[in-house]
Simulated scan of single mutants.
Amino acid sequence: MDPAELELLTQTLRKTMTTTAPGPALDTALAGLGWRELLAEFPDPAVATVFRLLGETGAHASALTDVVGSATLPYAGGRWVVWEYGAGTADAGLDEELPLRPVTAPTGDPVPLAVGRRAVGWWLLGTGHAMLALARGHALDRVQFGRPLAAFQAVRHRLAETLVALEGAEAVLAAAEDDLGALLAKAAAGQAALTAARHCQQVLGGIGFTAEHPLHRHVRRAVVLDGLLGSARELTREAGALVRSRGTAPRLTQL
């Protein structure tokens, strides 16, 4: 897939996700665009593009089950969830818009964690960029003491730190090729999205806490996705234990 084709696909997917109701309707629309065929033929750009756009647009679809299957998904804290439309959520800690239902024990075949973590990592990255765009727009438009918020150094620092975290996570996601790389990429994306949530909330101030502003939806989505397939904190500890047991740190990418 050349860059021109990828750009055209990105524009088409973005328009579809912003004009189609999330959930089953979006599943149908993605299937009509050939999402599953694209996943089979070009898995890496398909996953990166679709899941990043899900984060940027705030939409959701069952694309993750197309990637990992319909098995039970591990969740932070030793819990398990399934993606199931129509069941609602039984845990107030989960995103009420996502059809994630807690279960007591895993069922079905084991989840291919590496590909799943890369997919959720791209989703988290898109969510982080959505929050950054909201905060940046607010900083440019809002005037305090006769100056735009973007003119204040403290605001600039928060936005810059957010961008650096997101750019770093994207680099790790792009370089992830094996199980350890995917684990670290998911951890980096989760931490970057949580960093974005913290800094962007501070930039937006009180308006960011209101139900009328879209930030809270992205913050909630970031927290939930960070826990899916292992949180940033858990995965970082897991990676450290793995490196310690091996007695050496593998080269993850050629610098």
Score class of each variant (00 low, 15 high):
M1L: 12
T12G: 01
R14K: 10
T18M: 13
P22L: 11
P22T: 09
G23K: 05
G23H: 05
P24D: 03
L26R: 06
E37C: 08
L39W: 05
F42V: 11
D44L: 15
A46T: 15
L53M: 09
T57H: 08
G78I: 10
A87T: 12
L94T: 02
D95A: 13
T104I: 13
A105Q: 15
T107G: 10
P112F: 12
G116C: 03
A119R: 00
V120D: 02
G121E: 05
W122N: 02
A130W: 06
M131N: 04
A133S: 11
L134I: 03
L140Q: 11
D141A: 12
P148H: 05
A150S: 11
A150M: 10
A151S: 12
F152C: 01
H157Y: 12
R158K: 14
V164K: 08
V172G: 00
D178N: 13
G190V: 12
Q191P: 00
T195C: 09
A197E: 09
H199Y: 13
Q201K: 10
V203F: 09
L204V: 08
E212V: 11
H216C: 07
H218R: 02
H218Y: 15
R220Q: 13
A222P: 02
D226H: 04
R233A: 14
L235M: 07
G240P: 08
A241Q: 14
V243N: 01
R246Y: 12
L252N: 04
L255Q: 04
